[in-house]
């Protein structure tokens, strides 16, 4: 069975249907990209998978490693191994990045019946991971995302991903607001975390991120439906012709 399998997923917010029947399967080790214009439902898909309570699932099924994902609370989805890199990472003043991540990692380990890490083991781990994603160690002591630049916030998301080691990482417009150098660093971080065990779902507006994170599959999302799927060349095609071509297909 696939790592993630989405079948005919419908979801709405405040009575407005955003997702109108999504079908998608991601295998372990695969990286999928979802592209689409503003308002097509990209971020909604990411948030529905994470369990954001402001969205209501009105139909369909989602299975993650054979578990019915939609039945799980958001924290249990995370503990099962679903990670969402937020488009707008949230600030938590007064809570250090280190403290936050330790609480997160140990909650996940506890859920899985693994031994919680003590302070020394944890510090060693985060120092190593910070290095691997080129995160300034000073950020570890700062409050979660508080006063971080846009680039630092995104890098911090990738750093958290590196520490929590999920089975599926959903990256919601991780490239937005990044200059080309920051984009590269983030992409390098992601690439270093790709493995046979892990799937990625990369959500983006632009093709440029996909020059650095080469996807196995690309899906075009329009008006809440996947209107076309293909290989990485689909992204290039989109870059040239825009979404207009698919608008007609969708209509």
């Amino acid at each position: 069975m696939a790592l993630l399998e989405i079948r005919n997923l419908h979801a709405q917010i405040q009575g407005v249907e955003i997702l109108k029947g999504i079908d998608l399967a991601i295998e372990r080790g695969e990286t999928h990209a979802i592209m689409g214009p503003n308002g097509s439902g990209k971020s909604t898909l990411a948030k529905v998978l994470a369990g954001d309570p402001s969205y209501e699932v009105t139909g369909g099924e989602v299975y993650f490693q054979d578990r019915n994902l939609l039945e799980l609370a958001p924290e249990d989805r995370a503990r099962e191994g679903v990670f969402l890199g937020f488009q707008y990472p949230v600030e938590i003043p007064g809570v250090s990045n280190t403290y936050f991540l330790k609480a997160a990692l140990n909650a996940i380990r506890k859920y899985r019946g693994e031994q919680e890490l003590d302070a020394m083991e944890f510090l060693q781990l985060i120092k190593e991971r910070a290095k691997s994603v080129k995160l300034d160690e000073a950020l570890l002591r700062r409050p979660v995302n508080d006063g971080f630049s846009g680039g630092e916030k995104k890098r911090n998301e990738i750093f958290q991903l590196a520490v929590l080691e999920p089975y599926l990482a959903i990256l919601d417009e991780t490239d937005s607001g990044l200059d080309i150098d920051a984009l590269r660093t983030v992409a390098d971080g992601v690439n270093s975390l790709r493995s046979e065990e892990r799937g990625f779902l990369v959500i983006t507006h632009y093709q440029r991120l996909l020059n650095y994170i080469i996807p196995d599959k690309v899906h075009v999302l329009l008006h809440g439906r996947i209107v076309k799927s293909g290989g990485k060349e689909l992204a290039e095609e989109l870059e040239e012709s825009g979404y207009a071509l698919f608008e007609e297909a969708a209509a």
């Binding site: 994470a50 958001p74 924290e75 938590i92 007064g94 909650a107």
Partner: peptide
């Protein structure tokens, strides 16, 4: 939600945020 998404249960998240 951000805390939940990192595996932290809601009551722990509230205490974390408030104590921060």
């Amino acid at each position: 939600l951000y805390c939940n998404q990192r595996g932290i249960a809601t009551e722990d998240a509230v205490s974390l945020i408030v104590n921060g």
